[in-house]
């Protein structure tokens, strides 16, 4: 009952308290920032600070001579990429490999959609779940282990060659691994073996989310199973598919290195070297850190531009950005 009339003193007091509260809040906010500061230090150390490493692309850096004693060479390494004809030849081959593997992966990116549609047609729920669990398993093993499996199965003394020889179908072991025949295709097959089941999970979930009334209506209209898939399931999955497609386009130059590194050998090197692997081989193998940095710098720039373009396209066509 005391607060019924507002007297000026109380109003001033309230204002003062409010200001005090704001101040305390700001102080509290800075205290909270101090709590996350150690993590920000990690972000700076492992994400921002390495960017300064690009500076090595403009020096003739040969460890253990420190950077400040190395010679500044300006754009020499960048010029070298386009002037020296053997380098040009090599780089063109590497770019061809990179583009080929990315294009093959993009061209087969509809396979997980088909896989999901097919799996969804299996009626027995336990059978379906078992297949899902077992086919996603390869996604969770490392590329080293995939190579170990490849070696056990396909090396000259591997399971497949022994089996074919025992059956007298072949006289000499087939060189699946130690040859440069169909290298791009083989790499595609391995990444499909590893990723197909896992890649389909997102579409399986999308199929579950499709309104059952759509199918009811289709059946009433006398649509066949194939027509239901063609006119209902596939159109409903397209938006998800486009998101995944654009993500893979923006990662066009980032094939990663693990797969190609483990499968690389003296025979298949010409067609297996993608950009990431080439950077490793040049930088760590040949110890040309500066030249390798120059290549990876160009790669990073092109990747950022690709991501930006894809984002603009996505905004224009779907009205939402992917990042």
């Amino acid at each position: 009952m005391d607060n019924v009339t507002v007297n000026p003193d109380v109003a001033a007091e309230q204002k003062r308290r409010h200001q005090q509260h704001e101040k305390a809040k700001a102080k509290q906010g800075r205290k909270m920032w101090l709590l996350i500061a150690p993590f920000l230090v990690l972000v700076v150390a492992f994400s921002y600070y390495p960017l300064f490493g690009w500076i090595y692309a403009f020096f003739d850096y040969e460890p253990p001579i420190p950077l400040h004693q190395s010679e500044f060479v300006g754009l020499q390494w960048f010029k070298m990429m386009i002037q020296n004809s053997t380098q040009v030849h090599q780089l063109v081959q590497v770019l061809a490999n990179t583009f080929a593997m990315s294009l093959l992966n993009i061209a087969t990116s509809f396979l997980p959609v088909l896989f999901a549609i097919g799996l969804n047609e299996i009626r027995n729920k336990h059978f379906r779940n078992t297949i899902q669990t077992l086919t996603t398993l390869p996604n969770f093993i490392s590329w080293v282990l995939v190579y170990s499996i490849a070696f056990a199965m396909f090396s000259s003394s591997g399971m497949v060659n022994e089996l074919l020889q025992n059956l007298h179908w072949i006289a000499e072991p087939i060189k699946f691994l130690d040859s440069d025949a169909h290298t791009w295709l083989k790499m595609l097959l391995w990444s499909t073996w590893k990723g197909l089941g896992w890649g389909s999970i997102i579409y399986l979930a999308s199929i579950t989310g499709i309104d059952p009334e759509l199918y009811e209506a289709g059946r009433v209209d006398g649509a066949s199973k194939l027509q239901l898939i063609r006119y209902i399931t596939i159109p409903e999955l397209l938006p998800t598919y486009f998101v995944m497609l654009m993500l893979s386009v923006s990662n066009f130059l980032n094939n990663g290195m693990d797969q190609y590194f483990v499968f690389q050998n003296a025979f298949n090197q010409t067609h297996i070297q993608v950009l990431d692997l080439y950077v490793y081989n040049v930088g760590m193998g040949n110890n040309s850190l500066s030249y390798a940095t120059a290549i990876s710098m160009l790669k990073s720039l092109v990747s950022v531009v690709l991501l930006w373009i894809v984002n603009v396209v996505s905004k224009k066509t779907r009205g939402s950005s992917i990042i």
Binding site: A26, M32, W33, I36, S47, Y48, Y56, V279, S296, M297
Partner: peptide
């Protein structure tokens, strides 16, 4: 109430989209 929350959030999240590369 975290001090400059938006800025620091973006500062951390944006690192997802670039990396300096293997050699750096």
């Amino acid at each position: 109430d975290l001090w400059h929350r938006q800025f620091w959030y973006r500062f951390v999240i944006i690192t997802m989209y670039f990396n300096a590369g293997m050699i750096p």
